[in-house]
Nucleic acid binder design. Structure first.
Lengths: 222, 222
DNA sequence: CCAAAAGTGTTGCCGGTACACCCATGG
DNA sequence: CCATGGGTGTACCGGCAACACTTTTGG
């Protein structure tokens, strides 16, 4: 939904659909979302979600994936369609299809040199965004929280191998509440989300600790 | 996604979005879906879901509601967005937004005289539909089943007042399995989905029986 | 020696499921 | 008298939450 192009250049190209992507990550303390600063009207100077019009022949998920790669440099991760909005105020698109994605901040390199200055913003500090982006983020957050309980979607928020506590910190950051270590382990192992995969090598670890990996790196819906 | 209009008439009108609606009802024995018989290419003669292009200025849910009213004569009932597809084979629309709806067959009058001959078809007997309608129906059915466990969406499948067994028959038809009477009652009452609302009057009832109503006739998501 | 991380079992509660019999009536 | 529908209580089981202490090591 970026539309950095002036409106007059929006000649009809066979598509008036746009995508917008809610890209979540977990930083030290809490859930953040990737926002850009709009460089052109409408809403010039406001924060907004990355997005844009569908290109000729492009698929919706293709456009969302492209946006994601443009802003974060990563691909091959969790991306799911959220909801389709219509008549978004001040948007040139007839319909706007929203997606949400999860990325491991460690694998990310923001394109900070670009004109629209992408930046991670704590989810709690986002308000007054362009278009109806607040609504979209709220909905995305709800879906994320729900799916965390049943699915393995956290797989793209963590490296290939990780300790239980690392995983638990991710869950706690998203859900915003502390959990019990033993109950947490039982739950994720019992749901076949993760399995043991070896021990930590010496460097950086206090002592050898069990490492886990996700049983699948594809999104699974139970 | 009906596109009864020949393709050549599909001049660009400011919208290349379409809606398609999966309209469910429960008949005597089982879940049925409303299908039309396509009167024009593509897929002439095939069964398909009702749908069509968005009109100028129309909202997505408005278009879905209109389609629903066109085919069944009812309005003011459960309607929810499902998923948005792109590049639907042989479709003129760039994106197709699917919806699903639930109607009480007793309140319905099909427009059987129309050229596309809408008819209820048992869900188990549908296959080989036009476009990718099989996929859409399968997805809609899954969502319906899931939501039945948590929400009050059945409200638009039943009259304003009903007995427990009537409600249970609806659930059993959709889920395809028999349930225990006492457990069923406890569950729906405990979830605050329904409340007692009076007794049957004499006519047609073997003896006075408790009537129930939904606590809300708006979709609630828990 | 202290802060930080890993690891490990038991108990109680609640929700869900299984299960059987009686009453009233219309045909 | 029988088929149909309404109405009711209990017992077991499994999943989920609460809860505390030990070990190792880097600083």
């Amino acid at each position: 939904m970026r539309q950095a192009e002036p409106l007059t250049s929006l000649r009809y190209t066979g598509s008036m659909a746009a995508v917008v992507v809610v890209i979540f990550t977990v930083e030290k303390e809490g859930l953040s979302v990737l926002l850009i600063e709009r460089a052109a009207p409408p809403y010039q100077g406001s924060w907004a979600l990355p997005g844009g019009l569908l290109r000729e022949g492009e698929t919706l998920s293709g456009a969302a994936t492209r946006k994601l790669a443009d802003e974060t440099g990563v691909s091959d991760l969790f991306l799911e369609q959220l909801f389709t909005f219509d008549h978004v105020p001040d948007s040139a698109a007839e319909v706007v299809v929203s997606y949400f994605a999860l990325v491991d901040v460690a694998r990310t390199r923001l394109r900070a040199e670009s004109e629209w200055r992408p930046a991670w913003r704590p989810i709690r500090a986002t308000s007054g965004l362009a278009f109806d982006n607040d609504r979209i983020i709220a909905y995305a957050e709800e879906r994320l929280r729900n799916k965390l309980d049943y699915t393995n979607i956290a797989y793209s928020l963590l490296p290939a191998q990780f300790t239980m506590t690392a995983m638990q910190r991710v869950y706690e950051a998203i859900l915003g509440e502390a959990m019990d270590k033993r109950n947490f382990r039982r739950r994720v192992v019992g749901l076949d989300i993760v399995r043991e995969t070896g021990l930590t090598t010496k460097q950086g670890a206090y002592r050898p600790a069990m490492l886990y990996e996700f049983t699948s790196r594809e999104p699974m819906t139970f």
